[in-house]
Simulated assay, not measured.
Amino acid sequence: MKVEWAPANVPPKRRLETFITGLFTLFFFTLPLTSLLLLASLLFYGGFVLRTLLVIYTAYIYVDHKRNYSAMDTNGWMINRSNFIYRIYRNYFPVTLVKTADLPANKNYILASFPHGILGTGICINMGLDISHWLRLFPQVRPKVGTLDQHFVIPFLRDLLRGWGLISVSKESLTYYLTKPNDPKHPNNRDGFTSNAVAILVGGAQEALDSHPGKYILTLKNRKGFVKMAIRTGSSIVPTISFGEVDIFDQVDNPPDSTLRRIQTIVKKLTGISPLIPVGRGFFNYTFGFLPYRRPIVQVVGAPIDVIRNAQPDPAYVDEIHGKVMEALEQMFDQYKDKYMPNSTKTKLVIH
């Protein structure tokens, strides 16, 4: 394999972006394991006082999660939702946010987000790490990103995720956020925000298994839980596509009938996590490594699809709304692919 080395005269600004992105990427890939190892190390090597505090802390987050789903009602500390380090990370790709319709702050929203990609980078930057662009385009709407429920009972990891606006994607958690009142005078809205917008990567771990550059394969046909949640809570569904998300990483070839895919599927069923083997670039080469490729991601936010609230969603109505979401995604893909994708004529949207 011939290695393509980065040139020696790369501008310092780009070197800094690569370095910061490398740290973030390594951090995100290892965060759950690192959090558990840190807890174990502190419990093993720490003194009596530290061990006692850690036990109390671990017990507290478990009880708090059972009681209120580790909720973070506000946007949290803005210094941790928008700062120059996060902007450096954004500019590496770069990641862009495109608004196609207003999201009035008098209701709550589920953003049905596709594709998952390897890390869901575009969504996490726009609605988690660096929300300055979101707040400018969608004022008074709090951005939240749903992720695996089990992450919120892991010490240290739980607090990092909460600080970045990530929430549990459990039914109880989603119901909590999506039924929040929209009245500006309500005590819950003292921060000046009257709406919650929760991004859900609907395809999840299954869709991540199909992530390869240039391939937009969505796992959606049998995913209707988000539609039922929207109907139960009266939340509008906003389809969103992140063009370029699948291009920043490749992964070891894993066709559906391969041994690797069968192993990945078994692990996914047991843990809810796909054991991906990502392929990227290095700090000083473009051929191999764990860094994402420097390719643009454009998250296009579509128009909201309103629903009629019903605590017991009718299956026929669920199918109707689900069909509207698929139709909207197909229309968005066809409308914007030429603008935001290279080789768009060769790329098709596949919905499984």
Results as ranks from 00 to 15, higher is better:
residue 178 L to Q: 02
residue 178 L to G: 00
residue 178 L to C: 08
residue 178 L to E: 01
residue 178 L to V: 12
residue 178 L to Y: 08
residue 179 T to A: 02
residue 179 T to D: 07
residue 180 K to S: 10
residue 181 P to D: 08
residue 181 P to V: 06
residue 182 N to I: 07
residue 182 N to L: 05
residue 182 N to R: 07
residue 182 N to T: 15
residue 182 N to E: 06
residue 183 D to W: 11
residue 183 D to E: 12
residue 183 D to N: 15
residue 183 D to H: 12
residue 184 P to N: 08
residue 184 P to S: 10
residue 184 P to I: 09
residue 184 P to Y: 12
residue 185 K to T: 15
residue 185 K to S: 15
residue 187 P to L: 07
residue 187 P to G: 01
residue 187 P to K: 08
residue 188 N to W: 14
residue 188 N to Q: 13
residue 188 N to L: 15
residue 188 N to H: 13
residue 188 N to M: 15
residue 188 N to I: 10
residue 188 N to P: 00
residue 189 N to H: 04
residue 189 N to D: 04
residue 189 N to E: 03
residue 189 N to I: 01
residue 190 R to C: 11
residue 190 R to M: 11
residue 190 R to H: 13
residue 191 D to E: 10
residue 191 D to K: 03
residue 191 D to I: 07
residue 192 G to T: 09
residue 192 G to S: 11
residue 192 G to N: 06
residue 192 G to V: 09
residue 193 F to V: 00
residue 193 F to P: 00
residue 193 F to N: 06
residue 194 T to Y: 07
residue 194 T to L: 03
residue 194 T to N: 05
residue 194 T to S: 08
residue 194 T to Q: 03
residue 194 T to G: 03
residue 194 T to H: 04
residue 195 S to E: 03
residue 195 S to K: 07
residue 195 S to N: 05
residue 195 S to P: 04
residue 196 N to P: 04
residue 196 N to I: 13
residue 196 N to L: 06
residue 196 N to Y: 14
residue 197 A to R: 02
residue 198 V to P: 00
residue 198 V to Y: 09
residue 198 V to S: 05
residue 198 V to T: 12
residue 198 V to F: 13
residue 198 V to H: 04
residue 199 A to W: 11
residue 199 A to G: 13
residue 201 L to I: 14
residue 201 L to A: 14
residue 201 L to Q: 11
residue 201 L to T: 11
residue 202 V to C: 03
residue 202 V to D: 01
residue 202 V to H: 02
residue 203 G to I: 08
residue 203 G to N: 01
residue 203 G to L: 06
residue 203 G to V: 06
residue 203 G to K: 01
residue 204 G to D: 03
residue 204 G to N: 04
residue 205 A to F: 05
residue 205 A to T: 07
residue 205 A to H: 03
residue 205 A to Y: 06
residue 205 A to D: 01
residue 205 A to R: 01
residue 206 Q to F: 13
residue 206 Q to R: 14
residue 206 Q to W: 14
residue 206 Q to N: 14
residue 206 Q to H: 14
residue 206 Q to P: 00
residue 207 E to R: 11
residue 207 E to W: 10
residue 208 A to P: 01
residue 208 A to Y: 02
residue 209 L to E: 03
residue 209 L to H: 02
residue 209 L to A: 09
residue 209 L to S: 10
